[in-house]
Design a protein around this nucleic acid. Sequence first.
DNA 1: CTTTACAGTTCTAAAAACGAACTGTCAATT
DNA 2: AATTGACAGTTCGTTTTTAGAACTGTAAAG
Lengths: 170, 170
Amino acid sequence: MRWDALEEEPCSMARTIGVIGDRWTLLILRECFLRTRRFEGFQSALGITRHLLAERLKKLVRQGVLRRIPYQEAPKRHEYILTQKGLDLYPIMMAIVHWGDTHMVDTRGRPLLHQHRKCGKNFDPVMVCSECNEPLSAKEVHTHPGPGARSTPAITAPEKPKAKARRSTA
Amino acid sequence: MRWDALEEEPCSMARTIGVIGDRWTLLILRECFLRTRRFEGFQSALGITRHLLAERLKKLVRQGVLRRIPYQEAPKRHEYILTQKGLDLYPIMMAIVHWGDTHMVDTRGRPLLHQHRKCGKNFDPVMVCSECNEPLSAKEVHTHPGPGARSTPAITAPEKPKAKARRSTA
DNA sequence: CTTTACAGTTCTAAAAACGAACTGTCAATT
DNA sequence: AATTGACAGTTCGTTTTTAGAACTGTAAAG
């Protein structure tokens, strides 16, 4: 699969993965949220090769996730800062961190705590329904096609019409 | 960087990225949440090479995200189903989908709608503070070291002590 | 007895990532 | 005046991953 093809797929998840779905990009974005702004900052924090870093930053700028802002003339220098589109990735980041906090911690506990300025407490992020404010879990959600769903299913492998379950121990 | 090293880092995000932070893995998990369970199902839905699919499934099983359950003897066949650890990835998936719905839709609108069984309505996922239930945004959150923070910063590049800003147009 | 479903494994070619060195501008140091 | 260091990349040869297609093996169906 060509990875830029992901952005054309009629699936918001595939499209998003096309933008942020690789390891370095996610780590670069972590650094952005931790207030890193400059090339050397990213490079030394992550140990990414300079080549790849340059490429990933370019892509994030192209996608509108980061903005490249000059902070000095003479040797032209730029900072990379999150746009609103980039800031909106925050729930994804927090969800990733929280899963790690829940399932990947060692005996010492979590590496990082998060404090909510509004209420002053250390918190966990919780995902709730926008309509009833109840916490969400996979089993309580029903998925159905929306207006942007694929009309011509030509791209997918054609459904084999003769799908007769041989044995169904399942 | 060796990618399995990510799981040792004192950062819940890095550790999580070590498990799910690549394109195919995320797409495989999407399929899992859409109730795909079998090898051929994943393969034909995604167009992933069989080789990589086998490898990724193995890794997800090793990580405890999927469980490999026999559904027939004689050719031994297995299904891959989400464990609780895997189901807990749901907020990450929803956050990714929601970002795509917000920032990557074309004129036709969202490909998929989500209905909450409890309240019956189509919804968006919202991330809130576990303590005060207010929606979260990056700027309202302060991050500080937890018990599992790195005690010996030997792995990171040593902080250059003489960091004297040459020019600060910033 | 040939085909099909299914779950992989094996192989070679192509693409991506790594690692280290190099380019270029300017300020500060010697 | 010459050298060093900060900074933001680019270039290039090597190694690792991924793609793509074919092959293996079991058993039911036609």
